[in-house]
Every structure is written in C-alpha cells, then in structure tokens.
Design a protein around this nucleic acid. Structure first.
Lengths: 289, 289
DNA sequence: TCGTTCTCGGAACATCTGTTACAGCATCGT
DNA sequence: ACGATGCTGTAACAGATGTTCCGAGAACGA
C-alpha cells in the first residue's frame, strides 16, 4: 500500500526536514492521507506545531500552496480508489529473504518477517491450534508458562493476556523454592506452556518429562527443528525463525501467542468479557492502573 | 451499516432530493469521497449546479455545515483506511469476532498479522529507523527502556538483545528508589526507549519530558495514533495494531525491535561480535548458562 | 389561466482560511 | 565566548470560503 508517491516522498526525504517539519510529517503519515486534507490549523494542532510550520513543510515538499498540496493528495486518493489492485505495484515480496540489506533495513525486514509470520500461522496444523486453544480455555486448569533466555518474555506476554481473560495463569518462578512449591502441586489439572528454542535448554526437557509424568498437559512452542520437548508434549506449535541477524526471530512465535489468546477469547466468549470487566474493576479499585 | 454510511445514506434517500441536489449526489457518488472533499464551488461545477444547491444538499443529509459534512467524510475515510481487511466483514464488529473460530483462526491471523508487520516496517520512514539505530549504536550512551502493561515485555526483549551486543542497557526499574537513582543520573549521555500504546500512560509522558529536559534522547515506539510522548521524542516509530481480538497486536512492534537490533549489529560490526563473544565467555565462566 | 409552492442561482456578507513579515530562540562553527 | 545561521511561533494581512438573503423561474393543481 505504498504506491502513493507523496507518502513515499515524505519517507525518503524525511531527513532533510527540520524537526518541526518532521513532526508534521509524522502526524501526516500516522493517519494518511486524511490528516493532510484537514485545514492547516488542525494539522498543526495534530502535530503540535504552529500553522506556518505546516506551510513550510508543504513548501519543502515542492508545493507552492497548501491547496496545491491538498489537491495532489486528493488526486492520489482518487487514483487509488479507482484501481485498488495497484496496491501491489511495488513488489516487495521479491526481495532477498533472510539477508539484511542495511540500505533498506525496513524493506528487507518487512519482507522477511511478514513472510515468516504468514508461513508460521498457515503452517501450523489446524488440529494443533485447536487443541492448544481448548486446553488454554479450560478454566479448571491452571496455566504455567516458561521460556528460555529470550522466549521468557513471550511466556510473560502470554500469561499477561491469560490473566486478564481467564485467570489462574502464571509464569514459572525464578527462585528455586517457589518453583519447587509450584511443581509440587503439578498434576492433571495443569497445562504447561513451554517455549523452547535452540539451543534447547535441558532444563525444559526435565521439566516437561516431570510434569507429563504427573499427567499435566504440555503445550510446546518451538522452532521448526523441534525441541526435544516435542517428544513428551501434547501439542506442538512450531514457528519459522526468519532471522535478520545472528539471532532468530521471535516475531512469528509472538504471532502464535496472540492467535492463541484470540482463540481463547472466542471460546470463552462472555466468560472472558466478564472476567476482563472484573479485572479492570479490581485494578481501578486497588489503584493498580 | 455498510462499507460507507454516508454513501449508503445518499443512495437510500436519493428520492427525497430535488433534481439539483440529485445531480450533486450523483457527482459525489461518481467519485467518492474525493469530490466531497473539494470546495463547495468545485463540487458545484462538477455537478453543474450552483454553490447554494450543494449546501442545501449537505443540509438535507442532516449536516448543519458544509465543513461538518466534510469532517464526517474524512472520519469515514480514516476508519476505512485504518482497517483494510474490515472492508470485507463490513464493520459488524461482533460478527467479525465470531468469525474467528479455530477453523479459520490460523488463516485470518496469518493474513492480519503478516500484513500488519509488512505495513509497519515499510511504513516507517528510513530516516527514523536510521536515527534510532544510530542512537542505539552509540556505545557512549546508556540505553534505558520502559513500557506499559504489555509493551513492557518488549522493552525487556529489546534490552536483552542490546545487553549482548553493546552492553550498558537496562529496563527502567520498578522500585521507586532504583528508578529515582537511575533518573538522577539521566542526561545527554542517555537514550530512553519508551514504548507507549493506548491507553497512553501519563507516567511515560512525564518521564519523557523530564529526561528530554536534561537533554537525553528519546526514542518512542507507539501505535499509529501517536502517544503524546511523540511531542518530545527525537525519533518516533509507529506501528500498526492489526488486532485479532479486543487486544491490539504487539507483533509489528516486536518486528520493529528486531529490526533495530539487526541495524545495531550491522552498525557495530566487529564490535558487536567481540562483545557477544565476551558475553558468552563470561556466562560460561560464571556458570550462568 | 391563475396562484401557490417548490426550486434554483446571483450577489452581498461574515468568517475563517492560507499566507507573509518579523522577532525571539537555539544551534553550530569559529 | 561570540557572531552567524537556521528554525520556530506570534501577529497582522489579504483572499477565498461557506453562508445567507432575495428574487426569478419552473412545476403543479385548481
């Protein structure tokens, strides 16, 4: 959706603008093109600058008048509405995947990561997603999530969501005592969400084997080479790792997490809404906002 | 409520209009909505009527002013641009939510999220990305990151990476004392990475204003409605929020984080590699793996 | 045919728009 | 440290905009 010449022109030449003009550019790009179709004063307010700065911005773009600038915006809009297929005119998808071109950091990242997200989510078998959602939607079960170096933050992210829509969800504590306490009660009423990416952590495998033995359910989020935990897991959700640098990307995995949350919310329906309301009310009452 | 309420309203009530007003309506529908965003006189010419007729047309639609009519048109346009996928589900929010059953969960999530990632990364001006990378690659500066309810985990994620490739990076501590300690030293040698999404947190604005006053640099990661922090930020990186449920997605923002890290690694080159080697060695030596 | 009603456009009006000039301010280089 | 340069906001300006009023004309029914 970037065949629009004006927006592109702004993005390219943003460095030449002054800081005030840059604010205008940002405000315009943030809600394009409508912000540019309002009056000068409104756009100025939106950007937090004065009216003349907006005019200087238009001048710098090469327009003599503000009306002329608006006319260009309108023409562009009219063309776009006429031929909606032109959106794909600038083939971004054909760029090399996985390799980072520093000149076009944004573009190559866009191509690599969006493709990884798409492949991941379409690549996961329906049954697996379904099963994972069913387990996470079972409010009789407690949910415990854990991850490694980086994936730990996604465990937290998932739990933060689940806390709000269903409750009874925690991340596996760090401290040995707390951890032992939690695992002592582990049983068939629990589902463990384990995020394990290479280099796979042996600790995760021990954990998974242990709780599986006690008939707890295990959901595994991993990369496409499949952590050894997959041997004991009830559900396996593999993700692509389309990486931009030495590090693998966790973006597709985060997408899976959000899809899971969306599925849980849908399954729980009114239950989730009620829980959420209660959650918010409690937050307000205790001043936790 | 179909794709565009105003256009529909016109089509339905076309019979109530006078013949002159009808010509205006046709001209407007012929090139919708751009024709309505021009001046009264231009629309009048386009329709072959006089200016007052156009105003009567707007009045008949229930608008007190012509500007008010244009404002509605703009709002409608903004909404439509905001969620290009919702054009199909025709804005029935509840039904759209209901369509997210596990059967289509994977597909719709794939489409929504990968598109959001792509739009986000191609939509961010190169200048902003470069500026952010430049700031984060300056090892003379300390990096401090902070976020809100959910985005906090991304602040952690970013810092985890930066710790390994450049060091001198922390998340803003939770405890008031530690926080005060850190902020006491804040100055031109620092860059604050603030993640602020709606509902925007006033605390972030205060923080940003405070550190900006002391000449620290501020990098803002926000949604497309731009947190108020954007007023004082040196770099603004907006992201799409293509959401699957009641929650906005943070997947695109995570993609931005990874792109930033990739940029920093590239900029630092051998310096990053050496740092990483040292980091690994230290981890092994102290048994921190 | 006449009179009523509705519709429409011309012209004057008030407002708000975009615009410009100017002065204060920060930033940078010397 | 101190001018020079560039950037920004305030205030005043001219023009265009949307708006209103009023009279001319058309449509319709009696």
């Amino acid at each position: 959706m970037n065949s629009s010449s004006i927006a592109d022109s702004i993005r390219t030449r943003l460095g030449d603008f002054s800081s005030g003009e840059r604010r205008v550019a940002r405000a315009l790009l943030a809600s394009y093109p409508t912000a540019g179709l309002e009056t000068v004063r409104l756009l100025a307010e939106r950007a937090g600058v004065s009216a003349p700065t907006v005019l200087r911005f238009a001048n710098r773009l090469g327009f003599a008048n503000y009306p002329e600038f608006q006319r260009s915006l309108l023409e562009e809009l009219a063309e776009r509405d006429q031929s909606p297929l032109n959106a794909y005119s600038s083939g971004v998808g054909e760029e090399a995947r996985g390799r980072l071109d520093p000149e076009h950091l944004g573009r190559s990242a866009a191509a690599t990561l969006s493709e990884a997200v798409e492949e991941t989510l379409t690549g996961i078998p329906r049954y697996e997603l379904d099963a994972a959602v069913r387990l996470l939607s079972d409010t009789d079960r407690r949910v415990v999530a854990c991850g490694g170096r980086f994936s730990r933050v996604l465990a937290e992210y998932l739990v933060l969501h689940l806390m709000q829509v269903r409750g009874r969800s925690t991340v596996l504590p760090d401290s040995p005592v707390e951890r032992a306490d939690l695992l002592s009660d582990a049983g068939r009423r629990d589902v463990f969400v384990i995020l394990d990416f290479r280099r796979y952590e042996e600790e995760h495998l021990r954990l998974a084997e242990g709780v599986a033995e006690r008939e707890a359910k295990v959901v595994l989020l991993t990369d496409r080479w499949l952590s050894p935990v997959s041997g004991v897991a009830d559900v396996v959700l593999p993700a692509q790792v389309g990486s931009l640098s030495a590090y693998d990307s966790l973006v597709p995995t985060m997408a899976v997490c959000e899809a899971l949350v969306a599925g849980v919310i849908h399954t729980l329906g009114d239950g989730a809404e009620e829980r959420l309301r209660r959650f918010e009310e409690t937050s307000r009452r205790f001043g936790l906002l």
